[in-house]
Nucleic acid binder design. Structure first.
Lengths: 216, 216, 216, 216
DNA sequence: CATGAATGAGATTTCATTCAT
DNA sequence: CATGAATGAAATCTCATTCAT
């Protein structure tokens, strides 16, 4: 779990808003990015509740007070991180929207998304957010929206697969999509806890899921 | 989510240690039970980190200092709760160990365990423990042990099912068991976050899983 | 303004509640007293807003956290101080209730209450409380109640004085009482601000007030 | 208590300094005025210590940094406001300097000044300043100077009244003036705290004061 | 064993002021 | 002059844990 990987995450995340026009705006955006990046690392290493605002500020190389010029509070930092997860899921959603045979696309997606969650940092961050989402409605909302998009995209490809004869004809695409996503994620989360050598998660997952979808 | 249900949980939980022989021992055991019960309720309502030791003591009707006569600290209360989860899983493991046709037993297990986790209190408590388990090795250990037992029992029945011709012949019982458990749990966790009307979780889950196992 | 005088204040104040029965209760009451005493001194020296909770705790010889075992917060310390002022006014109210010629009693009261407020600590504390009372309803309430009692007692003696022919027959006792109290207090407050040699406040005050009441 | 009334106050206040000669000077003066006006409103609504410099700047429509181009600090804003109170008292002092029968002029003054302080904004602002004046010598100084002028003017008219036979011959004009001012002010301050229907302050005040001065 | 007052480190947040742009 | 991001000290309050009674 190195610093570099998170810089990439946050760099990716911060692409989407309107381009900063002035030099000052750019500097401000960079600061925000640094803070988010630092927060992500702190939350990963120590958990949301074990992380102090001071830790974040220190790691971001920002003064404590200044952090509050960029975010109303600790909670809002997590909210923003949860929101940025959406950008991370975008490639997988885009993949599902591509034309081509449903089954092949589905398998690619499966491999891609599983690989994404196989990185402990992604899985842990999601657990951290889930945990907070239980009692903080705004985070819960974001979490659900993010995943609803993913499920919808997956459901579409599954439905197409049914039409193409690639999947069981009696498949409820929506529900199956939901379950597939949950399975991928749950598999990843458990993997974080088990310390032994990683199981061959992907292969087993693929077999299991395809059996469920194809029915043979 | 009423108080009574937790009393049952904890009552069930506290059966197993060596029987208290003196009156004082019995009183002590009762105190411990009350504290655990109170802790469970607090953790459910507010989360582990949002719960103060004072909250637990107050809810248990025990003095703050006295709580420390029963548990070395807050962390250890959670450890004990995690340990007690084992007792909760026992019935489902017992079910899997029963003689009879594998498929029927499996379906009963599926329904039973899904119903167990469909109660928000059980799902939330598990999330709370999982979240803490990431960075606290002793809790992580317990968590894994608990589930390893469950997976092993499930794997056994799946293996028997394969022999009986009830499931796909190429099924890796161990891995399939792992995935089935994860799927049941993940489904339950997600259900906690979504506020809308509950999906027909069980029916869909059963279809999906059986398709995966039976292969038609 | 020496420490001793406040010890007296607080000692006087804490007489009234039910006697502490256990040793622990007594110790607790003493701690509370010490905190209040320290708070009074801090507020006098530096003002309510310039005083930190740490200052109070340090001066009281109490740990910061422990202060919060005795008072919910800084505000509540001031509330209690405001409430204790009532006890301080009691002697003057008692004086007014004594039998005897109204005018003589009134003059004694005038001298007594003016002398009380001539002590800068009493005047400053009242200003501090008044200032906070503007925007904190609970303190405002206490303040008004305290003074309503005083005004009522004074009004009674003035009314008796009218009957006895000591005061103007057309005197509105209630309003006159209100104004007399206000005048005494205002005189004291102004006196705090002026640094020069004290005016002969009492003599002038007495002349002025008696002229107003007696009408010659 | 509407915004307009304060604009008037501050407009009145800012008349006296040397006329701005250049356009820039005028703009600068306007900025200062806006800041003072905003500060007055903030102090009234939330009190001096509860008001942040940011609040003032925001309300004045001025940038935070810019405020510091006009005032060395928060304290100095209050100092200036205290200084401007002088301008507010000017009309009442002018009134007292007019020729004519002392008693009539006095009564007019009484009515005018009482009405001025009957506006809660004026009374509250004065309390706020008084409170700060206790521990800030420069504000205390201003406060005393302002009132010394008022007292002096009043003392003069009282002295004339004595000569004219309108007031008691044994009246100490200086002291009586001091007390009358204090009484008017104290009456106003108390009125701010009491929430019930306003007493007929002026009528009672007038009766009381005249009785004291006239001696019948 | 039972009690709860005491501890003090640490949490989050605010604020007057500065200064590079 | 104008701007507002940056600063860091200080504020209030919480909390797991200890310990004398």
């Amino acid at each position: 779990m190195n610093d570099r990987s998170f810089k990439i995450i946050v760099a990716t995340m911060s692409v989407e808003p309107q381009k900063p026009q002035t030099k000052r705006d750019k500097a401000t955006a960079q600061r925000r990015g640094k803070i988010l990046e630092a927060a992500v690392m702190c939350f990963l290493e120590n958990g949301y509740h074990q992380t102090g605002v001071r830790d974040i500020a220190a790691r971001a190389g920002v003064s404590l007070g200044n952090l509050y010029n960029h975010f109303p509070g600790k909670h809002d930092v997590l909210v923003e991180i949860a929101a940025l997860e959406r950008a991370e899921l975008a490639p997988y959603i885009a993949l599902l929207a591509k034309p081509g045979p449903a089954r092949a696309i589905f398998e690619k997606f499966l491999a891609g998304y599983a690989a994404y969650l196989a990185k402990p940092e992604n899985a842990i961050l999601t657990i951290e957010i889930t945990s907070e989402a239980i009692r903080k409605p705004d985070i819960g909302e974001l979490f659900l929206v993010n995943h609803a998009e993913l499920v919808a995209a997956l459901a579409a490809i599954l439905a197409r697969g049914v039409e193409e004869g690639a999947f069981r004809t009696d498949l409820d695409a929506q529900e199956a999509a939901q379950l597939v996503i949950e399975l991928i994620e749950a598999s990843a989360y458990r993997s974080v806890l088990s310390k032994g050598p990683k199981r061959k998660i992907l292969a087993n997952l693929k077999n299991f899921v395809l059996a469920a979808l194809v029915g043979k």
